[in-house]
Design a protein around this nucleic acid. Structure first.
Length: 477
RNA sequence: CGGGGAGUAGCGCAGCCCGGUAGCGCACUUGACUGGGGGUCAAGUGGUCGCGGGUUCAAAUCCCGCCUCCCCGACCA
């Protein structure tokens, strides 16, 4: 409990310590396969609810598509299979005798191919469009190196797949979802993000363009927190997904796909945590308020318990997720325990407080203690939670601001990232060879996103020719 | 997937070189004292020594194969 590695000593160990000791997740014993424990899964459930509500509101429907994909289907879209080929796991045998299958089945690394193949049945007319599908599932990618939540061979996500009658509508769909993702990251997780387009080198295999959101973690590395892809007619062509348009002509659909994953939970850890453990944004916190009763004998325990019972039902009525920690531990242990778990607000309640009709409120960010009268406590805590959410976001914003710079040349970029992390904005001509050179020369700095709204007026940071794009650079997970 | 290290109680480790009763700290259980920031004392529980095979009278220890984990690199939501 006490022995989490200090963040400043070794960020990676700190991360692993926090994830495991705060009981978010664990390794399973099968290489790269993670166990998400209830406390971590509860955060994912909060994210799921938030995003699911958003997409339902705009007419999306949840489906369940198959786990296994025939090889012939997977390989139809050339770029797609080229991109995913190296990390696909195959089922080649079945039954007690392990008989060889006639056709190997891929365990889905993502479902564009199988959904494309299936959805074409349900699309005949422009009246069947748009078809807005989503599924909550897990996928398998045969990664060589794994980290809890950030890179495991199986991970949980949602994958949305939509089909439209026009390019414009599909492009708007990808934009709409990106906006939802931004809201999940900023409004729910309190992690400020850069949003924009990926460079060609980082674009999803088979996509026309990929939109991304990039958060900044406390070790200065960027984390891709979600992507939304516009496919044009690429997948519709490969899987023959067409419809009769208003002029009764056959036309290929325009499609999109988009996903956010349990990686989001890793982002919460790395964007907000400190040497004492997690700090969980109230909106996704499994426990928002923890009550630590303080007593020394049966009589004082009864007194404190009766007091807590007076006002705690109000918290429930106000929808506050709270817990009273009656475990037989000392208060100091409980404080440390709930700090490790990142619970935003703690109420210490002892006999003195009972007499004063108040509780002692301690928040996870400042750790300051102050008295809070129990009259109107639920309303007060609700606004404290809102304020906590806001403070956490502002703190992360300030961190992002303090770790974002503007640079002019490749030399500056290389030397800057030798000693620091964070984001660096530069202007770029768009040449892909230069993007590769950036990565090689700088030891892994990549273009995280392109600012779609900026109109560059300067020179490319690599070649000095007139720039076309303003791009954010960072080292990333 | 390359290079290095490791697997012995829930966690951290010693024992292995030189084969012969499986140990230590923390945690856990019970009790007493204690209780507003990580307690004290006492008595206890807990082990297919990662898995499979081999050598041997005898294997945690020696040999072979496999699995898993950690660190460093190349690839990645």
């Amino acid at each position: 409990m006490k022995d989490i590695t200090k963040m400043s000593d070794d960020f990676d160990r700190w991360y692993t310590d926090v994830v495991r000791k705060a009981e978010l997740a664990d390794w399973s014993g099968v290489r790269g396969m993670m166990v998400v424990r209830p406390y971590g899964w509860a955060m994912w459930e909060a994210i799921q609810r938030a995003f699911d509500d958003m997409i339902k509101e705009s007419g999306h429907e949840n489906w369940a598509f198959p786990l296994l994909i025939p090889r012939e289907l997977l390989v139809k879209e050339a770029e797609h299979i080229e991109g995913f080929g190296p990390e696909v796991a195959w089922v080649t045998k079945a039954g007690a005798a392990m008989e060889e299958l006639e056709e190997p089945l891929a365990v889905r690394p993502t479902s564009e191919t199988i959904i494309g193949h299936i959805i074409r049945r349900y699309i005949q007319s422009h009246r069947d469009l748009p078809k807005l599908t989503n599924q909550w599932n897990s996928v398998v990618r045969w990664e060589m190196r794994s980290r809890l939540f950030l890179r495991s061979r199986e991970f949980w996500w949602q994958e949305g797949h939509t089909f439209h009658a026009s390019a414009k509508e599909a492009i708007e769909e990808a934009d709409l979802i990106l906006g939802y993702y931004r809201s999940v990251a900023e409004d729910w997780l309190a992690v400020p993000v850069l949003v924009g387009k990926k460079s060609p080198a980082e674009t999803f295999p088979g996509a026309v363009h990929t939109l991304t959101l990039e958060g900044l973690m406390r070790d200065g590395l960027a984390l891709q927190m979600g992507t939304s892809h516009y496919f044009g007619q690429n997948f519709a062509r490969a899987y023959d997904i067409s419809f009769s348009n208003k002029d009764n002509e056959r036309e290929l659909c325009y499609s999109t796909s988009w996903g956010i994953s349990t990686r989001m939970v890793g982002a919460i850890v790395m964007a907000h945590g400190d040497d004492s453990g997690l700090i969980v944004p109230p909106k996704v916190a499994p426990v928002q308020v923890v009550v630590v009763p303080i007593f020394r004998d049966d009589a004082s325990r009864a007194k404190v318990e009766a007091f807590i019972n007076q006002w705690s039902p109000q918290l429930k009525q106000h929808g506050i997720r709270f817990r009273v920690d009656w475990r037989d531990e000392r208060p100091g242990d409980k404080y440390a325990h709930w700090e490790l778990k990142g619970v935003p607000l703690r109420l210490n309640v002892g006999a003195r407080d009972v007499d004063a009709a108040q509780v002692e409120l301690v928040d996870r960010l400042s750790r300051e203690r102050r008295a809070l009268l129990v009259s109107g406590i639920a309303t007060a805590l609700t606004s404290e939670l809102e304020r906590f959410q806001k403070r956490l976001f502002e703190r992360a914003q300030e961190y992002q601001r303090a770790n974002t710079v503007e640079l002019g040349t490749l030399d500056e970029v290389v030397s800057h990232f030798r000693s620091r992390g964070g984001f660096a904005w530069v202007e770029w001509c768009g040449d892909e060879a230069e993007e590769a050179r950036l990565k090689a020369d700088s030891g892994g700095v990549t273009i995280r996103t392109i600012d779609e709204h900026a109109k560059p007026s300067g020179k490319c940071f690599v070649c000095g020719q007139p720039a076309k794009y303003r791009v954010a650079l960072a080292k990333a997970y």
